[in-house]
């Protein structure tokens, strides 16, 4: 474990949504292998600031792999080389002295760049708003143990519910498809009995919004699953398709195709 290393970074810099960006080359010196990737960027930024330059903007908050705020494409892989690991949990021991590292923002028309490595993921929120919930009025809930849920169903639901909404699936997908993210929520709620009543509408509304946001389709490439920090399985995409077929066949009430709002 070489403890200190020097690296060359190529980082995407872009002032704002409108501006056109370009890669900048930076040298990161004496980087400890115990640093997290973001701490390495902190060090670079402190130096940039000291030199009177503009620090690199990147999203982050919890820095423990749960909030889903962080995320950049590192040498062509969303969240970097370590499987099932967010950018903030990636540590520099994954790299070695002399490495060149290309750092790019998520690329998708539905995720416009705000600045440098920061993108606008509000499309995800709008997909959830379209139906990614169970309509229950506060205070009107029945006794929690009134409806038993088979352990296997609730465990499977939890597998899907773990999604942190980071967007790496979109970033990695050759079609910039949001299928894994959307199917994770569709799957989670469809597996819980509480989600049953809205099941047919939910999947149609969420898929319609997903399209309205301009994400691509799913060709079953499996890149998303491979980079997903929570290892959400592509089987949920199959489940979502199944749900949609069922919904289109079974459902009476109309759901209009949505346009981006």
């Amino acid at each position: 474990m070489s403890d200190s290393m020097n690296l060359v970074l190529h980082v995407w810099r872009q002032r704002n949504r409108e501006a056109k960006g370009a890669f900048e080359r930076y040298e990161a010196k004496d980087i400890s292998s115990h640093m997290s990737f973001l701490e390495m960027l902190d060090v670079v930024n402190e130096k940039l600031l000291a030199d009177g330059k503009e620090p690199i903007a990147f999203d982050h908050d919890c820095r423990e792999g749960i909030c889903g705020m962080c995320g950049v494409v590192i040498n062509g892989v969303a969240h970097g080389p370590q499987a099932a690991t967010t950018t903030c949990q990636l540590h520099m021991r994954q790299f070695k002295n002399g490495d060149e590292i290309w750092i790019e923002p998520w690329r998708a028309s539905a995720f416009p760049v705000i600045r440098d490595l920061v993108v606008d993921r509000s499309a995800f929120d709008r997909v959830i708003q379209a139906g990614g919930y169970i309509s229950v009025r506060t205070g009107s809930a029945p006794e929690a143990n009134a409806t038993p849920v088979s352990k296997s169903d609730s465990d499977l639901a939890m597998d899907a519910a773990q999604c942190i909404g980071c967007g790496a699936c979109v970033a990695a997908c050759p079609n910039a498809s949001a299928s894994l993210f959307v199917s994770a929520k569709v799957g989670h709620l469809a597996l819980m009995p509480q989600g049953e009543p809205e099941r047919m509408d939910r999947v149609r509304k969420m898929v319609a919004q997903m399209d309205a946001e301009g994400f691509g389709h799913c060709s079953n490439h499996g890149e998303c699953e491979a980079v997903c920090p929570k290892g959400i399985s592509v089987n949920f995409i199959a489940r979502m398709n199944r749900e949609l077929v069922l919904a289109m066949a079974a459902s009476r009430d109309p759901v209009a195709p949505r346009t981006k709002d």
């Binding site: 809930a141 929690a144 509480q194």
Partner: peptide, 10 residues
């Protein structure tokens, strides 16, 4: 707990 279970918290 009732509220959260009704919301589908697994």
């Amino acid at each position: 707990i009732d509220q959260c279970v009704a919301q589908g918290v697994p």
